[in-house]
Design a protein around this nucleic acid. Sequence first.
DNA 1: ATCAGTTTTAACCATTTGGTTAAACTAAAT
DNA 2: ATTTAGTTTAACCAAATGGTTAAAACTGAT
Lengths: 200, 200
Amino acid sequence: MEAENTEQKILIAARQVFLKKGLAGARMQEIADMAGINKALLHYYYRSKEQLFRSSFQDLIKQMLPKVFGVFRTDLPFEEKLRTLTADYLDFLTEYPQLPVMILSEIQRDPQLLFNELNIPDLVDFQDLQKQLDEEAEAGRIRPMQVFELIPNLLSLLVFPFAAKPIIQNALKLTDEQFKDFISSRKLTVPDFFMNALKP
Amino acid sequence: MEAENTEQKILIAARQVFLKKGLAGARMQEIADMAGINKALLHYYYRSKEQLFRSSFQDLIKQMLPKVFGVFRTDLPFEEKLRTLTADYLDFLTEYPQLPVMILSEIQRDPQLLFNELNIPDLVDFQDLQKQLDEEAEAGRIRPMQVFELIPNLLSLLVFPFAAKPIIQNALKLTDEQFKDFISSRKLTVPDFFMNALKP
DNA sequence: ATCAGTTTTAACCATTTGGTTAAACTAAAT
DNA sequence: ATTTAGTTTAACCAAATGGTTAAAACTGAT
């Protein structure tokens, strides 16, 4: 998190502020203060708030997507894919717990935002995954399952607890540390739960 | 959605705008326009933007919570509870698909918001539910399961698809109507998935 | 018809906010 | 030493925005 050049300092500060407050709620002054620079310098490096937001957003998404979908491009057995993805994704989100809400709310505001820059089918070959599922089902190891049911269910189980972090923490009276433990426990319980749900 | 008195018109308009843009993104002028009234009239009825937001937010939450948690106060068999809650909750969220993101992002901004006004343990008696789970497990109908694992998993499966609606719609190329069908199919697949995951 | 209370409006205000400008500083290249 | 390019700042600006005010219009009771 240390400062290198000014551009980096700005990006890091912007990320922090945008993650917490979103595009509309963020103030250029706050970002400048957090980066320890003058507000005009923001506009020198990134012409507008919108542009700074996009850079910061893009940066995060580019970090995120390979970790979410990368494992789908390997030829690991299905259960391995599931366990790897779960652990990697939960680790990543633990670093940026506010990311899901920020992404979801900005996409609600501007649905184009995400898809102008990246192509999800490019990242996950749904058909390949479906083929693997069909094979597993054929072999009697899991019950028949559609990717379009499986993927939303899996992402739900992985992402939602972060989106609902304040609610969970309050309802269960967890400190930040305890919340991390809660998430950590899910690296096992979620794949277990999931594999059980897939049993024939 | 029809106008009764001005106060109602304002609340309805405010709800629409806040749902779409959140507190920071909403403009008083836009709310006034949508309600077909003058901006000053907003301030006559609701002193400030913050207060209008709270009223609108409160209103929605009060509608939502009984539907989410109400069934936990009945003495239905566990699987019945699960299926009832799923159907009711999915129906409710279908009416307000943007609600989850709005709630989650405003709570991230101000974690107090939700809990100042309502007490979740008052709505769900976790211990009662745990007892029921223990009984089901004892009888060999499900495997042992903690409420604190079950509830987050269930809410994840129910809420997340709405939060990710634009992503799902784009990735799967669904119209609004097809998205509703997708959600509707989950009234069966989610409880099925869930009950299967709970099998001993 | 009039009066009191409520509702509605147009005009206005102060502050905030994103963004600009022009000048000063720095360090490397010539 | 001077030029040049990049970096940083203080001071400003125009527009947007939440909020106020005072007066007009409406309503229902007397």
